[in-house]
């Protein structure tokens, strides 16, 4: 089992008031699954994604990722897990605007101490894999939205993470380009990657093999296609 979440609770404190974002969630995801997490805004899907991505810690319960209990790690330990285990793809791409594609893709390798030459080689391979072998030295503002998202996917792939976590990856793209991005995810899934996509669009969720729906901080359905 790759991901195991048991009785997860997450509560935010807004001054004196405690706002529950996730309530007693149980969830297991196997290796090489292709999962969509859906729900209206405020349903807790972003919170779930932050916890799955080790960007946030849970209030109580247990989260085991790749046989490792990550429920209560320190900031730096979580940073390490994110670096090794998780590849993020964001709605707004989140590339460094002043760095070229190569540098953006190699960034995770800088933080785990990979030597420069190896970094460049791996980053080039990752860019080729998403079809941007000829855009290595372009900066984000010289690339189209679809190309930017491909750079982001290349960055997510570079460390061979256990999970690729995509948050509305097609939200800022038109539907034709969105389809192209989804095709890349499909290929990655076929190649053995575990992919979790957070979305509120049904046609995106249709691409996935399993759809988990949230409402008011609870998992209300979990269906395999």
């Amino acid at each position: 089992m790759l991901i195991q979440i048991k009785q997860l609770n997450k509560t935010y404190k807004l001054g004196e008031i405690e706002v529950p974002a996730l309530k007693e969630a149980d969830l297991s995801i196997e290796k090489n699954e292709y999962v969509a997490i859906m729900g209206p805004s405020g349903s807790g899907k972003s919170t779930l994604m932050n916890i799955l991505g080790c960007l946030d810690v849970l209030t109580d319960g247990e989260y085991i990722l790749n046989d490792q209990n990550v429920s209560s790690l320190s900031d730096d330990e979580l940073a390490d897990i994110r670096n090794k285990e998780i590849g993020f793809v964001f709605q707004t791409f989140n590339l460094l605007p002043r760095a070229n594609a190569l540098h953006n893709v190699e960034l995770p390798l800088i933080y785990n101490g990979t030597p420069r030459v190896k970094r460049h080689e791996l980053a080039k391979q990752a860019l080729e894999r998403v079809g941007l072998g000829d855009r290595v030295h372009h900066k984000p503002n010289e690339l189209s939205g679809g190309q930017r998202q491909r750079v982001a996917i290349a960055r997510a792939l570079i460390n061979n993470p256990s999970i690729i976590l995509a948050d509305e990856p097609t939200g800022n793209l038109d539907s034709k380009i969105g389809e192209e991005i989804m095709e890349i995810f499909e290929e990655l899934s076929k190649a053995g990657n575990t992919i979790i996509i957070v979305t509120h669009e049904e046609y995106i969720a249709k691409h996935c093999k399993r759809i988990i729906r949230l409402l008011d901080g609870k998992i209300v359905s979990d269906v395999r296609n």
Partner: peptide, 16 residues
Amino acid sequence: TREIGIRKAIGAKRKN
């Protein structure tokens, strides 16, 4: 701030 967020998300520690 956003750049710092990106860097942290992909594994930058505090010391980095």
